[in-house]
Deep mutational scan, measured.
Amino acid sequence: MTEYKLVVVGAGGVGKSALTIQLIQNHFVDEYDPTIEDSYRKQVVIDGETCLLDILDTAGQEEYSAMRDQYMRTGEGFLCVFAINNTKSFEDIHHYREQIKRVKDSEDVPMVLVGNKCDLPSRTVDTKQAQDLARSYGIPFIETSAKTRQGVDDAFYTLVREIRKHKEKMSKDGKKKKKKSKTKCVIM
């Protein structure tokens, strides 16, 4: 069974824990209790493949930012979460993405942009803004509501699919490099 290491990042209060708990335990946590770091595991079937999701729910508070490099190193894919009623959390996505790329030393890291709290009427981040940002990053965008469960499975499952595509691409690139290195030079 394939294991996928997913990391949920975003500013404090955007609903990272609520999304994760909704996926794992099928219930909505409405009281806000700032996370330092929590880890969850769940076995699911995605596109006919049974897999184990190892999900790291991270601290959004700035005082825990020193811990970010460590979990970013171990993560295979990242859910970059903002709240649709919090423009600052949307603007912060850029910083999370840049930090992930720096730590992973790669421009090509599996990510999904997630606009959470889409059940709320007080939207300050337009869907088109988020779609445009995701398009500019070359990553999928999904709106979710941890409260109603809308888009929750889709967000995590899409990230797994992005990781699969990335692994497939990397193995193809690896095979191309191996083929090239088999060419021999004969000096007579």
Results as ranks from 00 to 15, higher is better:
Glu3His: 11
Tyr4Arg: 09
Leu6Arg: 01
Val7Met: 06
Val7Tyr: 05
Gly10Pro: 00
Gly10Trp: 00
Val14Asn: 06
Gly15Ala: 00
Gly15Arg: 00
Lys16Tyr: 00
Lys16Trp: 00
Leu19Cys: 07
Thr20Ala: 12
Ile21Thr: 15
Val29Leu: 09
Val29His: 10
Val29Cys: 10
Val29Asp: 11
Tyr32Glu: 11
Tyr32Gln: 08
Pro34Glu: 12
Pro34Ser: 11
Ile36Tyr: 05
Ser39Asp: 10
Ser39His: 12
Ser39Leu: 05
Tyr40Ile: 07
Arg41Glu: 10
Arg41Pro: 12
Arg41Gln: 12
Lys42Gly: 10
Val44Gln: 07
Val44Asp: 10
Ile46Met: 05
Gly48Cys: 01
Cys51Pro: 06
Ile55Asn: 08
Ile55Ser: 10
Ile55Ala: 08
Ala59Arg: 13
Glu63Cys: 04
Tyr64Gln: 14
Ser65Lys: 06
Met67Gln: 12
Gln70Thr: 04
Gln70Pro: 09
Met72Thr: 08
Arg73Leu: 07
Arg73Lys: 10
Leu79Cys: 01
Cys80Thr: 02
Val81Thr: 05
Ala83Ile: 00
Ala83Gln: 11
Ala83Met: 02
Ile84Asn: 15
Ile84Arg: 10
Asn86Cys: 02
Lys88Asn: 10
Glu91Lys: 12
Glu91Ser: 02
Asp92Arg: 02
His94Asp: 14
His94Ala: 12
His95Trp: 13
His95Glu: 06
Arg97Pro: 03
Gln99Thr: 11
Ile100Ala: 02
Arg102Glu: 08
Glu107Lys: 04
Glu107Gly: 10
Asp108Glu: 09
Val109Gly: 01
Val109Pro: 05
Met111Lys: 03
Met111Pro: 00
Val112Leu: 03
Gly115His: 03
Gly115Cys: 09
Asn116Ile: 07
Lys117Ser: 09
Lys117Leu: 15
Cys118Lys: 03
Asp119Trp: 01
Leu120His: 09
Leu120Arg: 03
Pro121Glu: 11
Ser122Ile: 08
Ser122Pro: 08
Thr124Tyr: 10
Val125Tyr: 10
Val125Gly: 12
Thr127Lys: 11
Ala130Trp: 10
Ala130Leu: 13
Asp132Arg: 07
Ala134Asn: 03
Gly138Glu: 03
Thr148Gly: 09
Arg149Cys: 15
Gln150Asn: 14
Gly151Ile: 06
Gly151Gln: 11
Val152Tyr: 08
Asp153His: 14
Asp154Trp: 05
Asp154Tyr: 09
Leu159Trp: 01
Leu159Gly: 01
Arg161Trp: 01
Arg161Asp: 13
Arg164Asn: 11
Lys165Glu: 09
His166Met: 12
His166Cys: 07
Lys167Tyr: 04
Glu168Arg: 06
Glu168Asn: 15
Glu168Ser: 09
Met170Phe: 07
Lys172Gly: 15
Asp173Tyr: 04
Asp173His: 07
Lys177Tyr: 11
Lys178His: 09
Lys180Ile: 15
Lys180Thr: 10
Ser181Phe: 02
Ser181Lys: 04
Ser181Ile: 13
Ser181Trp: 01
Lys182Glu: 15
Val186Ala: 15
Val186Trp: 04
Val186Tyr: 02
Ile187Val: 15
